[in-house]
Design a protein around this nucleic acid. Sequence first.
DNA 1: GGGCGTGTGTGACTACATCACCGACAGGCG
DNA 2: CGCCTGTCGGTGATGTAGTCACACACGCCC
Lengths: 221, 221
Amino acid sequence: MNDAAWIERFEGLSRLPAAIKETLVERSQVVTVPSGTKVFGPGLSPDNLLLLIEGTVKVSQTSESGREIVLYRVEAGQSCVLTTACLLAHEAYAAEGVAETDVTAVAIPRAVFDELVATSPQFRTFVFAAYARRITDLFRVIDEVAFGKIDVRLADRLVGLAGASGELEVTHQQLATELGTAREVVSRQLSEFQKRGWIRLSRGHVSLTDAPALERLAASA
Amino acid sequence: MNDAAWIERFEGLSRLPAAIKETLVERSQVVTVPSGTKVFGPGLSPDNLLLLIEGTVKVSQTSESGREIVLYRVEAGQSCVLTTACLLAHEAYAAEGVAETDVTAVAIPRAVFDELVATSPQFRTFVFAAYARRITDLFRVIDEVAFGKIDVRLADRLVGLAGASGELEVTHQQLATELGTAREVVSRQLSEFQKRGWIRLSRGHVSLTDAPALERLAASA
DNA sequence: GGGCGTGTGTGACTACATCACCGACAGGCG
DNA sequence: CGCCTGTCGGTGATGTAGTCACACACGCCC
């Protein structure tokens, strides 16, 4: 079988010189973890850089008070780079990453990561580009939390989380966590959306019946 | 004169091998910019990594709606690393950096930065440690904005911004920007602090008269 | 002294968060 | 089957923060 196939799925890695690709393929491992696994977090510092081949990892932060907010998601074709700073700087993150689906990923050991950063300009570009992306994600979160209205933010999440099917299995509490707000707020807002005929609610389930309307609201930042 | 003296002020750089230090000193420039200068921002992407020798740079973000929030400060002995991701990835940040005081800094050109990342493990550690630090700063901001009470946050800022003198020259609007909130909220909260005898207010000026009380409030996160 | 720009104070209102509940539903089990 | 239990969702009351629309105060410059 072709172990090297995964590398082509990463924009930014596919253009690496063949020799580097070989190093990468030889010295890294493909791992799979089931949905719900804690990939990293306080007290679980990763020894590897993960490149996701399949599935998504949800990265969230829990405050002292126990409330939680989703920071960003790592999707297939992306990497958990922010952990590398911790990885190399030996600092602990407050954030934690949980596999949201079954996940297949490539694990690049710390030493290999370090070596590749040293030897390959393209790999460096890949790493820093990934950083730039995550950091702008964080900036967006700050902006939304500080200045965004929740009806807009909620509509945005609903559209973002629902597949093309327009169906999603989430509790109100989970949606509240997405936005870093309280369940009651989400419940009331969902009722409002339902009253407008944009969604249909049932226990642990939301159906988008008028996605365009939600998108319009989401866009009216 | 000893151009290399600055390098010893950066924990993490002082331990670089002599040869690397020389490269750094030879190929970078010491620059000074006056207070108020926009160091980087939308439409002003930096070509250099800045290491601050003297002064502070305030990094803030302005939302579409025109509201602003301070993300973090770069102090003497620290570097503007987050811009390097942009620097190498050629991505534009939404954030902007403004010199808060007259600033003296070392400007390391992109090419030199890249080269040092490639050749020096210590420099890599320095860079990634700086990243880790900034990112945890951002996590803290998100946590505070999402879950923090403003009285606590305001008390924290007052203590943080005031020197040992306990005097600071700021308008209520500037404090509001620090926290990403509205001026009125700050004005009312300051009045409250004054009523409790913790501070004294005058136009464009705040005196901390009971810093310990503010610290206690700030700590009751 | 009369304008003028900036900074601050205030009241009324809306939005969101918090608190304290209660009822509704599903799954397991006697 | 009916009961128990844990999770999920609905609701009202209350508190805190953000918004809007002003009015006033101070300092500065003619």
